[in-house]
């Protein structure tokens, strides 16, 4: 084998190994690199009370209840299997609404309620003009 071919082989092997390493890192870090827990993750793993975590999922339909003072809000974060009630006091993001994604930072209380200290709205991959969305609003539910 000529040195040039050896280098070609080595180069191809090196790139395959590097891309493979990238994918191995992706799958190995799947649980560590998660930005938030889903309601199911919290139910299954019994997250300790008071431990700071992020909870992410869909705001359940017709679950947002705003308090008389205008800043306290209670709602339910749901995924396919589980639901967690959330309490938050503060100004909610503009995109915070029912049937759309949300990420709440905070911790679980002894009562089983999630006490959020900060809310982030999660945007999905869909982009459309306002006229188009009216026709689709009945099926507006999207994945978190």
């Amino acid at each position: 084998m000529k040195p040039k071919q050896q280098r070609l082989l080595l180069g191809v092997v090196a790139v395959a190994a590097l891309v493979g390493a990238g994918f191995i890192a992706l799958s190995a870090l799947e649980s560590k690199a998660a930005y938030f827990y889903t309601p199911s993750d919290i139910r299954q793993n019994a997250v300790a009370v008071g431990k700071p975590i992020r909870l992410g999922g869909m705001v359940a339909d017709q679950s947002i209840k705003r308090g008389m003072d205008g800043v306290t809000v209670r709602f339910i974060v749901a995924d396919e299997n589980s639901q967690i009630p959330v309490f938050f006091k503060g100004i909610t993001p503009d995109l915070f609404k029912e049937k759309s994604g949300v990420i709440a930072e905070g911790s679980m209380a002894r009562s089983g309620e999630f006490i959020a200290t900060n809310l982030l709205a999660k945007h999905d991959e869909k982009y459309m003009p306002p006229e188009l969305s009216k026709g689709l609003s009945t099926q507006g539910a999207s994945k978190p």
């Binding site: 590097l18 891309v19 390493a21 990238g22 994918f23 890192a25 992706l26 799958s27 870090l29 799947e30 690199a33 998660a34 930005y35 938030f36 889903t38 992410g56 990420i103 982030l120 999660k122």
Partner: peptide, 16 residues
């Protein structure tokens, strides 16, 4: 090595 990680970070990991 970073390219597949950037590409996969939003589908393989739960991300914002």
């Amino acid at each position: 090595v970073n390219l597949p990680i950037i590409h996969g970070s939003v589908t393989w990991w739960k991300s914002l």
